[in-house]
Design a protein around this nucleic acid. Structure first.
Lengths: 151, 151
DNA sequence: ATTAGAATTGGAATGATTCTAAATGGAACG
DNA sequence: CGTTCCATTTAGAATCATTCCAATTCTAAT
């Protein structure tokens, strides 16, 4: 018995919630919410495993697969950003302000750096005519203050 | 019978050669030379597999492990650069001039873009005092000319 | 209550890379 | 010129991060 009308996607409920970000209305299940909250409370650019560990204290039965699913959902909806500084694990970041990443090659720490002045990549690099830019990722590698002081 | 004096590492020979780059003296075995030559002749930022394919036409018995070894040796000695634009395979680049990478999210193509004017990241982003910068990686993501024209 | 779609799960599968232990090859020593 | 030493090379195993998959659970609309 096929239904006569297509069913709309599930809407918000008591256990469910939504978050308006960048004009988009994003559906957050409890797990997605936990993952988002953990990331929003972190400034250290955790990996999926780090996030799993932290979320487990609030939702002990969450699985790694779910953490990946949630991170993917949050990323595609623009609530968080996925960061690739080196090969290996992806890192995640809930800072949506314009910023770049400083990566300490000695201790591995990642620090957000915010713009001191306006920056438009097209002004600095000769891109072929007709190129459309959607986003830029700048990673600055070096030695952080603390590691530099030690050596 | 332990030798009384330590033996120096093997020196250059007829089959062997060296290349002076950035003041460093880098030992190149025939395989390393092939890998370097293939990469130097490529502008498409090939992956390790791509490089294996291309080197095979000149050295049919080379293995993937050797390609990885060579790429690692060449990278640590500064003859080539490893590029991470997304997660997945690393790409390699023999362009040592200052440049950034434009990545087309539609066709996957990677294009080198050279600076139109001088660029110093420290001028644009507030890094913590004491931070030492060794290198910056800028990836510009978007749609290339050809893909933009199609849509 | 029923049902359909979405979310979640554990575990299997995949893909890229790194590791390992054995084989090879050239150079210096005798 | 043969031996020894060590770097290089190799095939295949192991690892690591992630993605896939099929089964189960949940939620919200009928």
């Amino acid at each position: 018995m096929p239904p006569s009308t297509p069913r709309a996607p599930a809407k918000a409920s008591g256990l469910d919630c939504r978050l308006a970000v960048l004009g988009a209305d994003v559906r957050l299940t409890p797990h997605r919410r936990e993952v988002f909250d953990v990331l929003a409370a972190s400034t250290d650019h955790p990996t999926a495993y780090d996030i799993l560990d932290r979320v487990k204290s609030r939702a002990p039965h969450i699985s790694l697969a779910t953490v990946y699913n949630c991170l993917e959902h949050l990323t595609t909806h623009g609530l968080i950003k996925q960061v690739h500084l080196e090969r290996g694990q992806s890192r995640y970041c809930a800072n949506l302000h314009e910023h770049v990443h400083f990566h300490c090659e000695t201790c591995g720490k990642v620090i957000d750096a915010h713009p001191a002045t306006d920056f438009d990549p097209a002004k600095f690099w000769n891109l072929p005519k007709g190129t459309r830019v959607t986003r830029t990722d700048l990673a600055i590698h070096g030695t952080c203050d603390a590691c530099a002081a030690k050596s």
